[in-house]
Design a protein around this nucleic acid. Structure first.
Length: 487
RNA sequence: GGCCUCAUCGUCUAGUGGUUAGGACACGGCCCUUUCAAGGCCGCGGCGCGGGUUCGAGUCCCGCUGAGGUCACCA
């Protein structure tokens, strides 16, 4: 058996939909799990949808995600060029061949005629099948020549057989068959001379020796038409791996294709949202594929070994942001202190301008209780300045902190802390424990009062002494005194 | 509407004729604890419906229902 080759063939739209990324991931993993090659091909045949810089977004995303392609416009390869707009001559040549063979034909129908046809078919009393009516199918050769010579605009359409059934085996969906009568005479070459996706991808996949086509399940019913093209050329078609779509659920509980209204859907947006690449990859790998184990934390390298397209599910899966968040928290905790610090610093700086604060200590506190980076600033609002707060914050039943106990705890703490020569978390911790012992109260009661006075905030990253440590002696004492003065 | 396809806890899923239907997220409780998290333990919760086949069906067959896809000179 020849070497496995898969490809990712996105259109340069300017952003990478998460469903697209998953398609790329699965294609990549299909190749790598079998020691094969992964090709990147740019499908830019729609001139109206060209977006500047869009190809770069594709390169960047694959690079960040770690999906290194073995062939492609960026790194070359034996079967280039890998950008469809640079292959126009190739498509034209093959389309020509199909016309000569009688497997395709020129169509001179105007857009107006097509629009009118469409309108008729959409009318309530229309009962026939939809699509092109084959108007130009049987134009006499002489007439075609004349129209061509006159420079009439045209497209080239596939001539599909009127009867019979075309079937294929899909790795995910099993045997799929469609009556040829259901297939349309699809456009192969557009009026502007560019090929359609339908045609270009068949030619390219063959010429680039792609063995496995991984793509979304929206193509399942279209694939027989493509197989007909392969047959017309006498080529063997690749193995098909159609992926179930990724769905989203809205507030009302309605399920539909994952889109903007469900949350961030592009890779870039998710990164900006504070999700880690590793978490995204891990999560989407499991969205529709099961590793046949209860384990679910996988690095890309592990996935490369483990992946098996046979274990892809058929049914569409709903994208669950909650679970992604959980993965993200797991990966944040797995980061080394340095790695986390580097990633967290920009977010810390958003909230903390005070340069004298030990950012590394702060980061260490954050890493233990974070689900995504963007949650950082909101947790740090009290560092630069003590916020307005109500004395009610001093009341906490579980810690046995009351409006009476809090000022006592603060007074004693200030007294003891002022004499503390070494301002470290550890020293602070034992000093406050002693305060509690002297006062004859629970340590929690003292910790609570101190933490509230130091932060004016109910929930904080780190405990009382962690905060004091970072705040420093002078600022801490100021805040504690300020707190005491409120009573 | 025609055609294609799918269907196990709220969500992602394991399951391939005989299981107390397993795991994960979320949710609830407890433990731990210097707040909140994290972590540990426990719990709640599911085979869409109706017919078959079979000694026995989440697993096989048929129908229904529901859901998704597709029917572009977009990919």
């Amino acid at each position: 058996m020849s070497e496995v080759k898969t490809r990712f063939a996105p259109s340069p739209t300017g952003f990478m939909h998460i469903g697209n990324l998953r398609t790329a991931l699965y294609a990549y993993l299909t190749a790598k799990s079998q020691g094969g090659k992964f090709i990147l091909r740019i499908e830019d045949t729609d001139q109206d949808r060209k977006v500047d810089g869009a190809v770069q977004v594709i390169y960047d995303t694959l690079s960040i995600a770690g999906l290194r392609n073995d062939e492609g416009p960026d790194c070359g390869g034996p079967n280039g060029p890998y950008v469809q707009s640079e292959r126009l001559d190739i498509y034209r040549k093959y389309a020509q061949q199909l016309v000569e063979q009688g497997d395709a034909y020129y169509c001179f129908c105007t857009k107006d005629r097509l629009a009118k046809l469409h309108e008729e078919q959409e009318s309530p009393d229309f009962k026939g099948r939809h699509g092109y009516d084959g108007h130009c199918r049987h134009l006499p050769k002489a007439e075609v020549e004349a129209l061509l010579a006159a420079g009439t605009p045209y497209v080239i359409r596939q001539k599909v057989p009127q009867d019979g059934v075309t079937a294929y085996h899909d790795v995910v969906f099993g045997d799929v068959s469609v009556s040829n009568s259901e297939l349309q005479d699809i456009v192969l070459i557009k009026a502007d001379g560019f090929p359609t996706y339908n045609f270009a991808h068949v030619i390219d996949d063959h010429l680039m020796e792609v063995t496995h086509v991984t793509r979304g399940s929206e193509y399942v019913a279209q694939t027989p038409a493509y197989i007909l093209i392969y047959r017309a050329f006498g080529w063997e078609h690749p193995t098909y791996i159609h992926l179930p779509l990724i769905m989203g659920k809205d507030a009302e509980g309605n399920v539909s294709k994952l889109s903007k209204r469900h949350g961030s859907v592009s890779f870039q947006d998710m990164i900006e949202d504070g999700y880690l690449t590793e978490a995204i990859i891990n999560y989407i790998a499991l969205l529709g594929w099961n590793p046949k184990t209860d384990e679910e934390m996988f690095t890309l390298a592990e996935l490369e070994k483990r992946f098996n397209p046979e274990a892809i599910n058929k049914s569409p899966a709903i994208f669950d942001y909650e679970k992604l968040l959980w993965f993200n928290g797991q990966y944040i905790r797995k980061l080394s202190a340095d790695e986390f610090y580097e990633k967290a610093l920009p977010f810390i700086r958003q909230a903390v301008k005070n340069e004298s604060i030990d950012m590394r200590k702060l980061a260490a506190l954050l890493q233990q209780r974070l689900e995504k980076m963007t949650q950082i600033p909101a947790q740090l609002t009290f560092f630069d300045a003590l916020p307005e707060y109500s004395n009610e914050l001093y009341v906490n039943a579980k810690s046995k902190s009351t409006l009476e106990s809090a000022p006592q705890a603060l007074a004693k703490s200030i007294e003891v802390l002022e004499g503390l020569d070494e301002w470290t978390n550890e020293k602070l911790y034992y000093a406050l424990k002693d305060v509690a012992a002297e006062l004859g109260v629970k340590a929690n009661a003292v910790m609570w009062a101190v933490r509230v006075a130091a932060t004016g905030t109910l929930v904080t990253p780190g405990g009382a002494t962690d905060i004091l440590d970072i705040l420093g002696k002078e600022e801490s004492l100021n805040r504690l005194k300020n707190g005491l003065a409120r009573f």
